[in-house]
Amino acid sequence: MRWTSALAIYFLFWSLCVFFVLPMGVRTTDETGGDRIPGQADSAPHRYDAKKVVIRTTIVSTVMFFAFYLNYVYGWITPDMLDFFSPPNRLT
């Protein structure tokens, strides 16, 4: 695998992991006991920390990409193993 392909795949993992990480550790204003601003949604976070989101996303996406790369190198799960629609060849 070329390094540019690996970088592109890592970016895809990172952008996917953002959606996994965003709800982690979010507390609403009602949960923290703060004052709500008029018009604020009930589910709006009390305080948003982009640095924590980036760090958590990087950690999760690195672990996922590492597992993907190991599978690419060692071939633990191949596309043939995931072919559920073709019957197996049992002529042997």
Rank of each mutant, 00 (worst) to 15 (best):
W76N: 01
F66K: 03
P88Y: 10
L91A: 12
P79W: 07
Y48D: 07
D42L: 12
L91G: 09
M1S: 15
W3L: 15
D30T: 12
F19L: 13
P38A: 09
S61K: 00
H46P: 00
T4A: 12
G25Q: 01
R47I: 07
D83E: 13
F19V: 08
W14R: 00
T4Q: 13
V73K: 10
P45V: 02
L22G: 00
G33E: 05
V53F: 05
D80N: 15
L22R: 07
A6S: 13
Y48T: 04
P23S: 11
L7A: 15
K52L: 12
Y72I: 08
P87G: 11
M1E: 11
L91H: 12
T62N: 04
Q40F: 03
F85K: 12
P88D: 11
M1C: 14
V21S: 01
W14M: 03
V21Q: 05
E31C: 04
D30P: 03
R2A: 11
L22Q: 07
F85W: 15
P23L: 12
T57N: 01
Y48S: 07
Y10D: 02
T29G: 03
Y10F: 15
T78C: 04
M81R: 10
P87E: 14
V26M: 08
F68I: 03
G39N: 05
A50V: 14
K52M: 08
G33M: 06
P45F: 01
R36Q: 12
Y10C: 03
G25T: 00
T32G: 07
D30K: 12
M81A: 13
T62H: 02
F11D: 08
T62L: 07
L82W: 11
P87F: 10
F66D: 03
I9P: 03
H46Q: 11
N71C: 06
L82K: 07
C17L: 01
M1K: 13
D80Q: 14
T58P: 01
T29Q: 03
F11K: 06
V26I: 15
M1T: 10
R2I: 06
R2P: 15
S86M: 09
T92L: 12
V21W: 01
V60E: 03
N89K: 12
P45Q: 01
S5P: 02
S86D: 11
T78V: 14
P87L: 13
V63P: 02
R47P: 01
N89Y: 08
I9C: 11
P87T: 13
R56I: 00
R47C: 06
T62Y: 02
D42T: 13
F11N: 07
L70H: 05
I59A: 14
F84R: 08
T32D: 06
F11S: 10
Y74F: 15
K52I: 11
F65Y: 11
R56D: 05
T92W: 11
P88N: 10
V73Q: 10
L70E: 05
